[in-house]
Amino acid sequence: MHLSSDEVIFWQAGFIKLNGTIVTTWLLMLILTIGAKLITRNLAQNNAEISRWQSLLEVIVTLLKQQIAEVGLKQPQKYLGFLGTLFLFIATANLLTIFPIYEPPTGSLSTTLALALAVFIAVPLFGIQEQGLTGFLKTYLEPTAIMLPFNLISELSRTFALSVRLFGNMMSGSMILAILLIITPFVFPIVMTLLGLLTGMVQAYIFTILATVYIAAAAEICDLKTDN
């Protein structure tokens, strides 16, 4: 019994190794890309000819755009690539837990840390893009200059919390499932799987919303300034 799929190593050459997490992630990327490619290959223009898959994708994309806009970002299309991919990746990774042998890559702290690091890098990038380098740096001195260390610590700690939250939820989900399979192999694992699906979706939503809020907080100051 292993804690995460990191420990399943298929191939190793010194520092470089090919573990279960990376392979599963590649699989996910393949599924997402090929699915998107297949559905968007021939998009219908007429209302009557829209396929159900196309409407599914349209609903997802429109919903994401709407959620991003509701948090307070003025141009949702600009952030859709990053935040949308974040959500789709986590949600797909969590939803595929209904397959028996599958181990979600989000149950590995390495993956969640990578995602949180992506957010950690993306927030300053979007902030600088929105209001310039000095403008973004000023946000760290926001209430007063004394708050600078606390702002920096909060920046680090929230990244850490982001990664550990997702990891803890997914890891505990699969762990409970594994233990239950040993104790009561019938019925109860299914209930817990259902709970795991719900938790996985909620966690994907929370991760994306938190990333959106952080980006909005970094990009919003400019709007306040121009308003004043």
Partner: peptide, 15 residues
């Protein structure tokens, strides 16, 4: 718990 190569690989994968 944290395998830094996997973290880097996942970051790349994500991009």
């Amino acid at each position: 718990l944290i395998d830094w190569f996997t973290v880097a690989a996942q970051l790349l994968n994500f991009v």
